[in-house]
């Protein structure tokens, strides 16, 4: 019984560590892209000023161990677990860690009952946090967390091709046109420079889920599909020539990256789902050992 309690407590502690690091720091691959973006912004005074504030903010959040952004977002947990894993018990421990992080101001009170308008005050409620479980063959537990704020989520979009207004047909050229339409529509509202997670195909709900899942990929990885890899680069290059710039105030960097995946579709449907992630791309992950201690940080 005591052993059981220790194991549970260790799990809750590890998840709390994951939440804290995710709310207060950015992963290395994102920091590299932000550094690169900063070095590009020398022509436009507002872009330079904005990137300097972003860099100072990243430093301050880390030193103070406080949230990078006050919108600590939806907690999106992606869990790869071995067979026999008890999901309900895990969810309960996550909720304990989330409550603790909220009490300490690591997370904002960010869960509102949509019908009554009442804030639950602890980030727990219908659909909060959000969990995605996947059983894998390995004998270890991998937990990834993304904190996705509302500003960028509001800029996410879904298109059904063909789209006559955009002259976008059911091919990769059409896909490119609708993705770039999202970039133009978002301007600085999603907190540019952002990252796009995209899913081509699927149904409406799976498409959006897969688009978000693309945001788990490292920014410096290469898509195994050569056509999609080319499209990802093309989207970033074109977006960065539009002049939207950091926070939409003009400049050289509008996107830090674009990650595209696909799902099969029905003959009748051709959806393109786009998830906009802000520059405050809070994503971390842990691998736990048998005692639920953190063995390794994934990103």
């Amino acid at each position: 019984m005591l052993q059981m309690w220790i194991v549970k407590k260790q799990m809750a502690d590890s998840i709390y560590e994951l939440i804290k690091r995710t709310s207060t720091t950015l992963p290395g691959d994102v920091l590299d892209k932000i550094d690169k973006a900063s070095s590009m912004e020398n022509g436009n005074e507002r872009a330079r000023y904005t990137m300097d504030i972003i860099q100072e903010n990243i430093k301050l959040a880390k030193i103070k161990s406080l949230p990078l952004c006050q919108d600590t977002g939806t907690l999106l947990f992606y869990v790869n677990h071995p067979a026999g894993f008890i999901q309900n018990g895990f969810i309960q421990l996550v909720c304990e860690a989330v409550e603790k992080a909220t009490e300490e101001g690591i997370l904002r009170q960010n869960s509102v009952d949509t019908i009554s308008g009442k804030n639950t005050g602890n980030n727990i409620g219908r659909g909060h946090p959000s969990f995605h479980f996947h059983e894998h063959e390995k004998d270890e537990l991998e937990i990834r967390l993304i904190l996705k704020g509302g500003g960028c989520e509001n800029m996410s979009a879904q298109y059904s091709l063909p789209d006559t207004g955009l002259c976008a047909g059911r091919d990769l050229d059409g896909v490119k046109k609708v993705i770039l339409d999202t970039v133009i529509n978002s301007q600085g509202k999603g907190c540019a420079p952002g990252v796009l997670g995209v899913c081509i195909g699927g149904d409406r709900s799976n498409g959006h889920a897969e688009a978000k899942k693309q945001l788990l990929r490292r920014l410096d990885d290469k898509n195994v599909d050569s056509d999609l890899s080319y499209l990802e680069q093309e989207i970033v290059e074109i977006s960065n020539k539009t002049g939207i710039g950091p926070m939409g105030l003009g400049g050289e960097t509008t996107l830090l990256g674009c990650k595209i995946g696909s799902l099969n579709r029905l003959p009748a449907s051709y959806f393109v789902s786009i998830s906009y992630m802000c520059w405050a791309y809070r994503r971390h992950g842990i691998i736990l050992d048998k005692n639920h201690k953190i063995k390794k940080w994934i990103y």
Binding site: N57, L68, Q70
Partner: peptide, 10 residues
């Protein structure tokens, strides 16, 4: 600046 919660709260 969006997201700059620490610079601004400082």
């Amino acid at each position: 600046t969006g997201g700059a919660a620490q610079v601004l709260s400082d």
